[in-house]
Lab assay of single mutants.
Amino acid sequence: KNAAQIVDEALNQGITLFVADNRLQYETSRDNIPEELLNEWKYYRQDLIDFLQQLD
């Protein structure tokens, strides 16, 4: 998997990933985040941060 796929997957589930103060953050109206997504975000944290910062 790559960062773009993970960001896309999150968006499809109503979750927006973004970077604030060099930390990976998310916004969602969901009550909870599936644990497998959280684990994936932790595992790919630096890739996601790098990818999202390139988009800014």
Rank of each mutant, 00 (worst) to 15 (best):
V7Q: 03
Q46P: 04
F51H: 07
L38S: 05
V7F: 11
K1H: 04
E27F: 13
N2T: 15
A4W: 09
Q25S: 08
D8T: 14
K42C: 15
L55V: 11
T16P: 02
D56K: 12
I33M: 04
N2S: 15
Q25L: 13
E36K: 09
E9M: 06
N12I: 12
W41N: 00
D47C: 07
L55C: 09
L48E: 00
E9Q: 06
E27H: 14
R45V: 14
A10I: 02
Q5S: 07
R30C: 09
I49G: 00
I49H: 03
D50P: 04
R45W: 15
K1D: 02
V7E: 00
Y44C: 03
N22L: 07
I6N: 01
S29M: 12
L17T: 03
L52K: 00
T28A: 06
E40P: 01
F18K: 08
G14T: 02
A10S: 04
L48F: 01
Q53W: 06
I15G: 00
N2C: 14
E36F: 09
N32Q: 13
Q46R: 08
A4M: 09
F18W: 06
P34G: 05
K42S: 14
L37W: 08
Q25C: 15
L48H: 00
A3Q: 02
Q25N: 08
A10Q: 01
Q25G: 09
Q53G: 10
E9I: 04
E36V: 10
I49Q: 04
D50I: 12
I33P: 05
Q5W: 06
E40T: 07
L17Y: 01
Q53C: 12
K1R: 07
E9D: 07
S29P: 07
A3C: 08
K1Q: 04
D21M: 06
L52F: 10
Q46F: 07
R30V: 09
Q46H: 09
Q13T: 04
T28Y: 05
E9S: 05
T16H: 13
L52S: 01
I6P: 00
E27N: 12
A20N: 09
F51S: 01
E36R: 08
Y44M: 06
I49Y: 06
K1M: 15
N2K: 14
N39E: 13
D8Q: 15
T16S: 07
D47A: 15
D8V: 13
R45L: 15
E9W: 06
L37Y: 06
L11G: 05
P34V: 04
Q53D: 06
E9K: 05
L55H: 12
N22K: 07
D50G: 06
L48T: 00
V19R: 01
G14W: 05
E40F: 05
Q46L: 10
P34E: 05
E27D: 09
I15V: 09
Q54R: 13
T28S: 09
D56R: 11
T28E: 02
A20W: 12
L55Q: 14
I33Q: 01
P34I: 03
Q13R: 09
R30T: 07
Q46K: 10
L24A: 00
I49W: 04
G14K: 04
S29V: 08
V7K: 02
L11R: 14
Q5R: 12
D8M: 15
L17E: 02
F51D: 00
Q25R: 11
L52V: 03
A10P: 00
T16F: 14
D31N: 12
D21G: 08
L52T: 00
L37E: 01
Q25K: 09
L37M: 11
D21F: 06
L55F: 11
N2M: 11
D50N: 12
Q13D: 04
Q5T: 08
L17M: 05
Q53L: 14
Q25A: 08
W41Y: 05
W41L: 10
P34S: 09
I49T: 04
E27T: 14
F18C: 13
Y26K: 01
E36L: 07
K1E: 02
D31W: 06
R45C: 15
L11K: 14
L38H: 05
A10F: 03
Y43W: 11
I33K: 01
E27P: 02
L11Y: 11
R45G: 10
S29I: 10
Q13L: 15
R30E: 07
F18D: 03
Q53N: 13
A20I: 14
E35V: 11
Y26N: 02
D21Y: 06
F51Q: 01
L17A: 01
F51G: 00
I49M: 09
G14V: 02
Q54F: 10
A4E: 07
N39D: 12
N32S: 14
L55A: 12
K1N: 04
W41Q: 00
I49S: 02
I33E: 01
L52P: 00
I15C: 05
A4T: 05
Y43D: 10
R23T: 15
L17G: 02
I6K: 01
L37Q: 04
I6D: 00
D56V: 11
D21V: 05
V19H: 04
Y43L: 14
D21R: 04
T16Y: 15
I15S: 01
Q25E: 09
D50Q: 10
P34D: 07
N39H: 08
I15L: 03
T28G: 06
D47L: 12
L24Y: 01
N22C: 14
A4D: 06
T16W: 12
Q25F: 15
Y26V: 05
I49N: 03
L24N: 00
D21T: 03
E35A: 10
D8P: 01
I15Q: 00
I49C: 06
A4Y: 07
D47W: 06
A4C: 11
Y44Q: 04
N39P: 02
L38D: 03
L11W: 12
Q46E: 11
K1A: 04
L48A: 00
L37V: 06
F51L: 05
E9C: 06
Y44E: 01
V7L: 07
V7T: 03
N12W: 11
I6E: 01
I33R: 00
D50W: 09
W41H: 03
E27S: 13
E27Q: 12
Y26Q: 02
D47E: 15
T28F: 04
K42Y: 14
R23G: 11
L11I: 09
Y26W: 15
K42W: 14
L48G: 00
V7W: 07
N39L: 13
E40W: 04
D8E: 15
D21K: 05
K42T: 14
Y44R: 06
Q53H: 09
L38E: 06
Q25Y: 15
K42P: 02
E40C: 06
I33W: 03
V7M: 05
D31C: 11
F18H: 06
D56G: 14
P34K: 04
K1S: 04
A10T: 02
E35S: 09
L38G: 03
E36P: 06
E36C: 07
E27A: 14
R30I: 09
N39V: 10
T28K: 03
N2A: 09
Q13P: 00
N12A: 15
Y44G: 02
E35K: 09
D50L: 11
L37D: 01
V7S: 02
Q53V: 13
Q13M: 15
R30A: 09
N12K: 15
R23E: 15
E35N: 08
N2R: 11
A3P: 13
L24H: 01
N2V: 08
Q53M: 14
L37C: 03
L24C: 04
E27I: 15
L17H: 02
P34A: 06
F51A: 02
G14R: 04
D56S: 13
I15A: 02
I15P: 00
S29C: 13
D56F: 07
K42M: 13
I49L: 08
D21N: 09
E35F: 08
L37I: 07
E27G: 06
I49V: 07
G14L: 05
D21P: 00
F51R: 02
K1Y: 04
Q46Y: 07
I15D: 02
E40L: 12
P34M: 03
V7D: 01
N22Q: 08
E35W: 08
Q54Y: 10
E40I: 08
I49F: 06
